[in-house]
Design a protein around this nucleic acid. Structure first.
Lengths: 135, 135
DNA sequence: GTATCTGCAAAGAATTTGCAATCCT
DNA sequence: AGGATTGCAAATTCTTTGCAGATAC
């Protein structure tokens, strides 16, 4: 893969976004730095960067793809009320991967864990109905 | 939601498919039973059935949505070679959900776990390179 | 009877692609 | 120089939607 200012900028934008941006969001941010960049270029480069494992694609039901720069193990949480995407710490999935590789005879290269639910913001005021106590 | 022959048939088809069909696949199967059904109706009803929690939507990067009838806890495995979707047994995620609800103060309603890797079929002949021993 | 559902076709949204010009190395 | 990359616009793909007629309750 050859250097290009466009790709470098796109990667930088994703790397400095903590909000799991969509292609469109990346496009608008990059446009401030390279005003004549085209949306097609953003899509092409996001795909190339995912292919090269430099970023990750997050595929969400009924939503466009989002992109994530984090390389450490973590899960995603999607609030069913506000549709915000949050990061969750990765906890015990390594054991699970090992178990699965042994029991199922597969080689797991990657995985994506996506939880749906109600985030703590949206949960305020709903606590009683779900029996969750505030800290 | 009112009864309709189309929706009943669509649900039946999904319930009797173990291959995580796409909307198009469901359409072709249903068309054999109701020849003049339209693709729009299939999409509309798959959406309605997901909404009513009677089936589940599986969102996969770079692929169209798939649908799953299984209500028991299990994960999905997507082979990066043949792109086949397999079921994996659900093992320890309940603990994880409990941990996350406690530590992150969220209410988890649902989740989808998707592993990418090489399935045992495609793995034959590649075992040496990945150091996996055949059973 | 009337609200919901259907088939059809057209529209919509997201993403990809063909091509000539431009940019890396 | 020569292949990769870009901007642009058109094409593609998947999915949704408006509408008039049919169906369920």
């Amino acid at each position: 893969m050859r250097y290009s200012k466009q790709r470098e900028t796109i990667l930088n934008v994703v790397n400095h976004s903590s909000d799991h941006p969509t292609a469109e969001m990346v496009y608008h941010k990059v446009k401030k730095l390279i005003p004549n960049i085209s949306l097609g270029t953003v899509y092409r480069n996001l795909n190339a960067l995912v292919e090269a494992s430099q970023i990750k694609r997050i595929s969400i039901p009924k939503d466009v793809d989002h992109f994530d720069h984090r390389h450490d193990e973590h899960y995603h949480f999607c609030c069913t009320e506000c549709h915000h995407l949050y990061d969750l710490p990765g906890i015990t999935i390594h054991q699970l991967v090992q178990e699965l590789e042994q029991d199922e005879m597969v080689k797991i290269m990657d995985y994506e864990v996506l939880f749906y639910g109600i985030c703590s913001q949206c949960l305020k005021g709903k606590e009683d109905s779900y029996g969750i106590k505030r800290k």
